[in-house]
Structures are given as C-alpha cells and as structure tokens.
Design a protein around this nucleic acid. Structure first.
Lengths: 339, 339
DNA sequence: GTCATTTTCGCAAACGATTGTTACATTGAC
DNA sequence: GTCAATGTAACAATCGTTTGCGAAAATGAC
C-alpha cells in the first residue's frame, strides 16, 4: 500500500491540507508541526503522487517529443539537446518514435494531447495532415516544429537554412574545380531537401562552364544513399563530386563508391550534410555542412516552454540557425582527366 | 477552455457516468444515447484527460527509461527496441539521460517514482547507490536492469554474456595467429568490462606461447579509445592486435592507429564489441562481437510489463542473450615480422 | 489584561475521470 | 394485466492532491 497525505495526516494528527503545505514548504505552517509531518512522511516512506498533483494543479511538467527515428545519430543529437534543456527546466520528456509512419504519428500525437503534455516537439515531420494540424490547433498546447523548413502552418519552428547549406556545398565544389556534380537527394516532396537542392543548384549553375547537377531522389538513409550512388555510377555521367542529402546517406554513397573500385576524394569528392559526430570517424573524414543539432534541440525546448508559460500561442516563433562548411578530406580537386 | 465529461453530460442531458461509459464503449448504454453522446463529444472537440483517468484507475501506462547517454549509438538501438515494444503494448516512455551522473540519476529515479510509472528500465548503470536500491525496493514498481552483468541486487535484468564475448574475441585473435595482444578496457570497476576482460584473458592465456594481454583502462568513448591507443602505441609493447571495450572506443583506437602511420589490419588488427550499425560503415569494416541490442530493449520492456501485470515483484527474471563474432576486415593474421 | 494583528490550521471544494450500487423503464412470458 | 427479468441511466463515492476561506490560537503592543 502506498502511503498518501491522508495517512500522514492521521498519523500526525493534522489535517491533510496542513500536511500538503508542510511537505511543499508553503507559508503558514508552524515549524514544529512541519517537522513532525516531515518525520512521519519519512517514516512512512511517503512519495508524492504527481498524477494527483497534476490533476489538481493542471500542469504535467512533461513535454512530448516526436521523432522519425531515434536510431539516426542526427536525430539523437537534437534529442540530447532537448532532453538537457527539459531537465534543466524540471520537465520530463515522452519519447515517441514514428518511423515517419503517419498512422503512428497521429496516434502518438493524440495520446500526447490526452496526456496533457505542456508542449509537443515534432522533429522533421514530413507533412502534417489536416487532421493533425486541426487537432493540434484545437488543443491549447504549443507545438514546435524541428528541423523542418518554415511552412505555411502557424506553428513555431527551429530549423537551419537548408538553402544556404546547399549553396555552401555547391560553392565549395565549384571552388575546387568540379564542373560535373550530382545531388543525391531525399524524398522528392520533402521541404528540407528541396531547399537544399535549390541552393546547391543555384551555386553550381552560377558558375558559367559547369553543367547543371544530376539529381536523384531516394530515402535519405545509409542504404538509400548506397542504392542511389550505385545507380548514379551505372548511369555514368562522369560526375566528379557528389553532394549527399545527409551524412548517413553519404556513408552509404561512400560504400558504393568504394565497391565500384573508386576512391574518395581522388576519383570522386563527397560532401555530406549535418556533420554527424561520426563524419569525423569514417575514412576519409567527411567534408560536410555543419548544423548545430544540440543547440537546436535546446532552443526548441526553450521556445516551447516560453510559449507554454506565456500562453501566447497565437504568436509562433521561428528560429533559424546558421550552417557552415566543415572541410575534411573527402573533397579535393577533381582528377586531372575525367573518366 | 478544454471540454470535460461534465460539459458533455450537460449538453447531452445525461449523467457524466453515462458519458464516460458511452465514450469507453462500456456495456449498458443504449445505442441511441451513445450516439448522441459521441456526437456531442465530437462537436465539443472532447479530448479524454488521461491524467484524471490515471488517478482514478491507478495505471499510468508509462514506463521510465534511464540511459547513460542517448548519444551513444549502442544505447540508441536498445532504446529503439524498448520504444517499439512499449508502443506495441500501448505504453509510453519517459526518456531520462543521466550521463552517468549519479545525482541526476537519483533525481530522475525519484521523479519517475513520483510520476507513478509502471516500471523502470535502467540501462547500464554503473553502480546503484544504497539509496537507490532502497527507494526502488520500497516502491512497488518493477525494475529491469539492462546491459549490466547480473548483480547481487534482486532486480530483473537483461544482458549479454560479456565473458563469452571476451572469449570469442580472444579466440578469434589467437586463431589468426596473434600472440601479443591488448585489451583497451573501460572503467576498472565496471562489471561488464571486467567480465569481458576475464573472458578475453582466459582465451588468450590458454594458448601456450601467447603473452598475457596488455590491459589499459579508460572511458569507453571515442576519445577514451583514442587516448588509450596512443598511450599503448607509445609504450611500444609490440602488440599486433587490440580488443576494444566497445565499437565506439574502437573507432577512436582506429584513429590513433591511423595517425601513428600504421594500417589496419596490416600492422594491427582491431576488434570491437557491440556491433554498432556504423561498424560496417567505417573503413575497414570493423570485426566485432555482436550483441542483439534491439531485441534486448524489447525483451526488457516485455519483462517489465510482465512483472507489472502479475505484480510478482519478488521473483526477478534474468534474461541473457548470446553473442557472436562478426568477422569483417579489421582483423587478419599478424604481420610477418613484428615491429 | 484587553484588543488588534498575525500565525497556524482545519474545512471543503475543486481537478476530471471511473465504477459499484441502486432506481426506474422497458421488455417479454404467461 | 401481472410479475420477473433485463436493460438503461442516475447517484455518489473514490483516486491523491491543492488551495481559498474562515475560525481558532498565538502573539505583541499598550
């Protein structure tokens, strides 16, 4: 049997209200009685029931975090930042892994709402269905969209400038002298990759003698990158550099290049996106576009908590982080003679 | 204003109890009234308040998951398995990242208890303090220790046979012909690494002409492995193979070997532990000891839920998973002439 | 010692559900 | 038309807290 305020109240001979106040250190309870109550509470191994408190007070001190795949190291970093910020603020995090499965996503969203979380973080959701947008808007809790290009919806968001990242990647390759490049992108309809591609294409085509990039779409995973790269190499466009949708897919691309008997960066340069921790571990270390993942997670929670406290849900906040190029060894000048 | 059962009850002209039963599809409410209630609920955008239900019913449908570092890909896989299993069972997961900081760990543990989670999963905690053991035992919720060698405490556990893993690694290196090897271990007092080392040493020393392994201790991280390897190479024992505490530290070791101008596996063979997804991505692909991470996460949740349902906390369940050697390209026969 | 002021504490009403018990309506058999 | 059996729905207690309000008790000034 777990002990409750009532038990303590009986044992200590005071009202349950007094017990509550004593335990919470509220003003207006005599030092002596407080100590007596605390002693009894300790003796009875009392543990507060946050569920009951939550019901009474109306605050759950809990946030929902919806992610596409916790297995993705990029996502993980963001989660880490979010968790730290939440912990610092005395909040808990409910972790929901959706695998981008929209049924699962909706189901999770509903239970988060029902659980009365004080805010929801959604990481790189592809597209929100109308149901979702509507139900989220009806609820009076704040939502922050993470790592997703700003959209029409009026939710708050934390993201990185994907367009700018694309530009950086393109410029870097152009500076190195590449003139025939490819962008192995993610899903065709995903805003982030669209932006990334636009920036890349802009940078590439603004150099006069360079060919417009070859663009292929596929899942932005290790295997997706691998398959796409195999396809690209078979088509034999003679590209000398590849811009990957993200680091993880770049790893897959690297594998395909290796298996084709080619070498990075001597035959083909490779540049990623995200700057995952392991980009520095693989060989050759991957040139990539850095994105402040941890800080983004933190920022998202801060915004969320700010909105929750102020209650000003009507005025969504957008925060955009900068990107920067991290030069490592997977990019270099193109081979003298293109194959 | 969020709408409650009472609102619906007024609007539909029935008692709140009837509304509750109608919404939950309980037996004993007329089809017509149920439909009327459902219609009103929909019109009022009713959302169940799980907090209230939880208080009334006494079940939170929530599990606590305490991990040392969500950034570690090994941990992540386990979390993924746990999350999937929880989702399948209709449970939610509260994510708590402790960074092995025991103050944070205790604080998290307490709030999980206060939040009335139905079970707690603790991933590879180093050592439980007496306070923790006591408070956890006092609470009436089940605890499952994950990835931690079985201990004296009477909590349930899911782990892998670290000793056996060490043996496998040792045997593999011996078969390849290595006779002078090293184990770059984790913290000296961590049970898992101790077991791993024991197994390794046993396998190595049971070969007659092989020297007992050089053993160094340090944090089992990328940087930890890097530092340890540098130290080892400086000491110049002439080892031809290294067994790492885990894959991530093996990556660091690989970096140090590379920087020393040596090559894997030609100069030094390297074998990891865990079989993280990226072990197959790095070059050369890492030979390692496979551990069914995802399945362990799943199993842990299943055990937890089983204990929670049965209420038989007195009889902890231990599940041990097998390990196996995954041969890749980071191990080979030692160089003809040792350096 | 009296009176005003301040502390201390109990009472009771929330918070939003669930659920056992009871009362009334309906149905069907005869 | 009566009675029993069944189906519906209302009443009320409960889950473990918090908190506004008012009463009693303690304090302090004079």
């Amino acid at each position: 049997m777990t002990t409750t305020l009532k038990d303590i109240s009986k044992e200590a001979g005071v009202d349950v209200a007094t017990v509550s106040r004593a335990l919470n250190g509220s003003y207006g309870v005599h030092k002596a009685t407080r100590e007596r109550v605390l002693a009894v509470a300790k003796r009875l191994n009392y543990r507060a029931n946050l569920t009951a408190r939550e019901l009474a007070v109306g605050k759950s001190h809990t946030l929902g975090l919806l992610v596409p795949d916790i297995g993705n190291p990029f996502v993980t970093e963001v989660v880490r930042g979010a968790e730290d910020a939440a912990y610092a603020a005395g909040y808990h995090i409910l972790l929901c892994n959706s695998y981008l499965d929209s049924a699962r996503e909706v189901q999770y969203m509903r239970s988060l709402l029902d659980k009365r979380v004080e805010g929801i973080l959604m990481h790189s959701v592809q597209t929100l269905s109308n149901t979702e947008v509507e139900e989220l808007s009806n609820s009076e809790i704040p939502v922050v969209l993470l790592c997703r290009s700003p959209s029409a919806s009026n939710f708050s968001g934390v993201c990185v400038n994907h367009f700018e990242g694309g530009v950086l990647a393109g410029e870097h390759l152009m500076e190195l002298g590449h003139r025939k490049v490819a962008f192995l992108s993610g899903p065709r309809d995903h805003g982030n990759f669209i932006e990334q591609g636009k920036g890349f294409i802009k940078a590439v085509t603004s150099v006069k003698d360079s060919a417009p990039p070859v663009v292929l779409n596929g899942p932005p995973s290790f295997d997706g990158g691998y398959q796409l790269a195999k396809k690209l190499l078979e088509q034999n466009h003679g590209v000398t550099a590849i811009f990957a949708a993200n680091d993880v897919s770049a790893f897959g691309i690297g594998r395909a290049i290796f298996e084709a008997g080619l070498s990075i960066p001597d035959d083909i340069s490779l540049i990623g996106f995200n700057n995952v921790e392991l980009a520095n571990v693989v060989r050759p270390p991957l040139t990539t576009i850095h994105q402040p993942k941890y800080e983004m997670g933190q920022a998202a929670v801060e915004i969320l908590l700010g909105l929750a406290k102020s209650g000003r849900l009507g005025v969504p906040e957008q925060r955009e982080f900068g990107v920067r190029l991290v030069k490592r060894s997977s990019t270099s000048a193109p081979p003298k003679k293109s194959r």
